[in-house]
Design a protein around this nucleic acid. Structure first.
Lengths: 178, 178
DNA sequence: TATTGTTATACTCTATAACTATA
DNA sequence: TATAGTTATAGAGTATAACAATA
């Protein structure tokens, strides 16, 4: 699904080849009108953090969807499973707060993970309303593999960055949303 | 709409106050089970670029929606308008490639902007199939204001960053998706 | 009265297939 | 045959209101 997308700039350019051949034939068209044909200027947008952060996130998520598909995990499933695994007994409400999800949207997610045998719901020790979530052995084994796959894919996707730059980027992004 | 969301960690914590008062009354519960009550550990997710970029982007976009609402512009509308303004005569196909949009999803957007008198569609000089998009005087005036508002909001949202850090962050993000 | 988890539901976003008209 | 723009539509994501059980 996310593989055949019209990516920006260079990535899809070789496949389409735009107007390059024709322009080679008649190279001196009126440049004022043709200016936008070869290269589109998105200079202002590139000064916006929101735009760049979103484009970078989508770029990574695209590969994430592909690589994590064998585990049956989409980004949200992965985030939920990872948080449950590292916080045994965590409640739905806590997951919503930690991951910025809305309770109604988490219900189906939890049910799905439970029906797949990846998590268990146990009564909360101190609150009869709440339910503690726990990763099963199967779920834990899956997440060990999934987290490794996710880490590998991220290194690959951020290959143009040095480890130091990668660390810096993570820290700066967290300064925005935390 | 985007104002009353359950934000993560500290931001909603003061409103809920979780279990702090009760824990103060009986401070020595079995810490193994109560560990997840106060603070949820999302440590692993925070090592992932995709997660951090998405959270940062959503955080900025949330404020963007609020501040740009008076202009009747959502992030995609803004991106399209900004690109048209800075690339007079750009085509839909070029917009899709530059902004990573799918053609069918751009149609309604363009029609909406045109019906609002913000852009004009003119026949393409060299290609009878294509249509050149141009910002009207009204559209240009709107975007001058909108771009200033967007820049202001971004500075505000990235207030924890120094100008140098902000510049670094933009450059590093572009290394990922460009 | 407030909160957890839930249901139902609506709205938006994203994606695919297929058509037309031009090249 | 291939591309630009379009239509229709399906699917996923995101949002609000309201309810039952429990605190």
């Amino acid at each position: 699904m996310p593989s055949a997308k019209p990516l920006p700039t260079e990535k899809t350019a070789p496949k389409r080849a735009v107007k390059t051949p024709r322009q080679a034939v008649s190279p001196k068209r009126s440049d004022s009108a043709v200016a936008a044909i070869d290269k589109v200027d998105t200079g202002f947008l590139q000064t916006l953090m929101g735009y760049n952060a979103r484009r970078a996130a989508l770029s990574i998520i695209e590969l994430f969807l592909e690589r994590l598909a064998p585990y049956g995990l989409k980004p949200v499933d992965f985030s939920v499973m990872s948080t449950i695994q590292h916080n045994p007994g965590v409640t739905s409400r806590q997951l919503c707060a930690a991951l910025n999800l809305l309770p109604p949207n988490l219900v189906g997610l939890i049910q799905s993970l439970e029906s797949r045998g990846l998590i268990e719901r146990k009564p909360h020790p101190h609150d009869g309303r709440a339910v503690g979530l726990h990763a099963t052995a199967k779920g834990q084994a899956l997440m060990v593999q999934a987290e490794q796959t996710a880490s590998d894919l991220e290194i690959e996707k951020t290959a143009k960055l040095t480890p130091a730059q990668r660390k810096t980027l993570l820290a700066l992004l967290q300064k925005i949303y935390l």
